[in-house]
């Protein structure tokens, strides 16, 4: 227990942890502030103004259309060719209709808690996962590269217990930060929705869905932290984890996409990691196979493939378990030199 508390203290005292936490809070606050400023509640007056704007646009369009038809008729009377300029039948077939001018287009953006908070949770999870990755990698990587790990092992010569305790401390901190900031994040967006957006139809079911989304976010953040920790411990340097992250980013997100596109592989995105991250948050992610379409012959209904959050969970779970196992195995076997 004392080692666990010590490692929590060590992690909290680290400069990088503090700097990253400040950046994370500032970043999240920036997103919330930007969204609060861009959102405007649709009061009856605003809706009426939008309707009036839409009506005015319709009237203006109808007036322009009548003028155009009249000009066309006059041109035809002069024996001029009009089809190229006004279209067939002097454009009479294109008479503007009131339903073509949706008042929605004139309405300001309004944040809708029910419809949009799930995406907002994904943004939060991405930011905190990045924080967890960097802090997790540095926590053990810097310990290895500065000799701190060796010092600690002189005091606590149980390697697996030391590494496990460090990991537990990291995951506890990440869970704590996620829960605390997640609560603030939810409260902030509820406040934004209440004062500058919409909280309509937020039922108990919606809150349940938000809760489950939060749990999925927490799981992703913990996995990001644990994987970074394990990679940095394997390479005994922070750069190992960061290098792998950049490598996977380049290979998975760019290389595989280009490669599968060139090779004409169906559903190439099923080999890209971000597809599974999206499926994890969206519960399921639909891939469309446009490779099978022959658009020259007209419209095409592309084949579909559904990636579910369960498949994502399996992939991320097995992947992170393997990396963690390797880190602990190497910790047990390899000399500390």
């Amino acid at each position: 227990m004392s080692l666990y508390v010590t490692e929590l203290r060590r992690l909290a005292k680290r400069r990088l942890t503090r700097i990253m936490l400040v950046l994370l809070v500032l970043g999240l606050a920036g997103v919330a502030t930007a969204l609060a400023f861009s959102s405007q509640q649709r009061s009856p007056a605003v809706v009426a103004q939008a309707q009036a704007d839409a009506d005015a646009q319709y009237r203006q369009a109808a007036k322009d259309w009548e003028k155009m038809v009249a000009e066309c008729d006059a041109a035809q009377a002069r024996g001029e060719q009009t089809e190229e300029r006004y279209g067939p039948n002097c454009g009479r077939d294109w008479q503007p209709q009131p339903d073509m001018f949706d008042p929605e287009w004139s309405l300001p953006y309004e944040f809708n808690f029910r419809g949009e908070f799930e995406m907002i949770v994904a943004v939060f999870a991405g930011a905190v996962a990045l924080f967890g990755f960097v802090v997790g990698a540095s926590f053990v990587g810097a310990e290895w590269s500065t000799g701190g790990m060796m010092n600690l092992l002189l005091w606590r010569p149980r390697r697996l217990a030391v590494l496990g305790t460090k990991l537990a401390a990291l995951l506890s901190l990440l869970a704590g930060v996620t829960v605390l900031l997640g609560a603030l994040w939810t409260a902030a967006f509820w406040l934004i929705a209440s004062t500058r957006g919409s909280t309509e139809k937020v039922t108990a079911g919606v809150w349940q869905s938000v809760g489950l989304g939060g749990l999925r976010a927490l799981a992703l953040i913990l996995v990001a932290g644990a994987v970074a920790f394990a990679l940095a411990s394997l390479g005994r340097h922070t750069a190992m984890a960061l290098g792998v992250a950049v490598g996977i980013g380049v290979i998975s997100e760019i290389g595989i996409r280009i490669g599968t596109a060139i090779a004409g592989v169906s559903f190439g995105d099923r080999y890209v990691l971000s597809t599974y991250a999206m499926a994890w948050f969206e519960k399921q992610h639909k891939l469309l196979d446009y490779e099978a379409c022959n658009l020259v012959q007209g419209a095409c209904e592309p084949a579909e493939m559904i990636i579910t959050w369960q498949q994502s969970g399996l992939l991320f779970g097995i992947g992170s378990a393997l990396i963690l196992f390797a880190a602990f195995w190497i910790m047990r076997r390899r000399d500390v030199a």
Binding site: E7, R9, R14, A142, T146, G147, G148, L152
Partner: peptide
């Protein structure tokens, strides 16, 4: 001697003392 460069000497020793009870 290798220590975490951003900690003070007191922090360094205090963390070790905690770890070793």
């Amino acid at each position: 001697p290798q220590f975490f460069p951003h900690f003070t000497a007191r922090d360094t020793l205090s963390l070790l003392a905690n770890a070793g009870q």
